[in-house]
Write a protein that binds this DNA or RNA. Sequence first.
DNA 1: TTAAAGTTTCAATAATTATTGAAACTTTAT
DNA 2: ATAAAGTTTCAATAATTATTGAAACTTTAA
Lengths: 168, 168
Amino acid sequence: MELAAAKLKFIEAWGKLGSEWGINRTMAQVHALLLISPEALTTEEIMEALSISRGNANMTLRDLIGWGLIEKQHKAGERKEYFFADKDVWNISRQVAKERKKRELEPVLKVLNELSTVTGDEKDPAFKTFKKSVSDINKLALNVDKTLETMLKAEENWFWGSVLKVFK
Amino acid sequence: MELAAAKLKFIEAWGKLGSEWGINRTMAQVHALLLISPEALTTEEIMEALSISRGNANMTLRDLIGWGLIEKQHKAGERKEYFFADKDVWNISRQVAKERKKRELEPVLKVLNELSTVTGDEKDPAFKTFKKSVSDINKLALNVDKTLETMLKAEENWFWGSVLKVFK
DNA sequence: TTAAAGTTTCAATAATTATTGAAACTTTAT
DNA sequence: ATAAAGTTTCAATAATTATTGAAACTTTAA
């Protein structure tokens, strides 16, 4: 396969994967484009490469910065802004884990905590089932939280080394 | 908090979490409803509890069965079909992991494999960056795949025991 | 059979989410 | 000052995704 075709295929696949995981397709595609680009790109270049509008490009780039996945770069003597992505896949994973933990897991833990204070009749099967399910989910979520916490601090080799060794 | 309010809050939170992770909100809500219900429910009861149409309920229940998260139950002497959810949170996690691995991770691994056969000029930075990114992502995806594979075979206590012990 | 009970399908519609494009705004150089 | 280059905003629109509801279908029992 030629590089040009491969790039398109990569961008398409990354966009599809993103959308299956609740990430806007365009955002995933812009990230993919920057991931495989050795140079920082301008808004114009991104618009052109993905056939998207200026407004869309601007908002998407802002979101990606908000996720900590890309950065602005200023080139000396240039007026335009350039964007580039961290190419370290482990950093990317940690960044995504960190954001989703903050945006999604933590709010859920908060709700589960509130729900565990529910009051009712201990003899009522509906009450017992509710409490059991909430409590089990809470335990699982706390384990996931702790594991992510560790991942955020870990080096890639150490992390996978430990995890895969345990599972051999 | 009262049980009735807590149930609603749980269903709402589960629906929201689902939609943030690429799972249809209604599907997550129906699953939540069955998770906290000690008895199997009929389509009618589910429609009523969540204010959804018969068509929606039927399709959603079919999808949930397809994900292996709920089952049909036939009650002796009854014409209606009843639905109930496995309440074991570890089984649920494994089932979701199994399905997403099959539906999403495996197709991505296939594409990454194809993309690693890309041909081009080894001196070209664009080519080198592309190959490096694809190769790094491929390695990560393979590690995730192996870890999920282990999880699918594991017992909950063993799994979290091992993972959390490593990270202490 | 046939009619009642229950289930499934799917075209039409609604709701949600993403995108455009042009105007407003900001920055820089002259 | 002002004009050119670049960026941001957001109301309007498009595209996508979810939902309805009624008709078609299936199953069961009299």
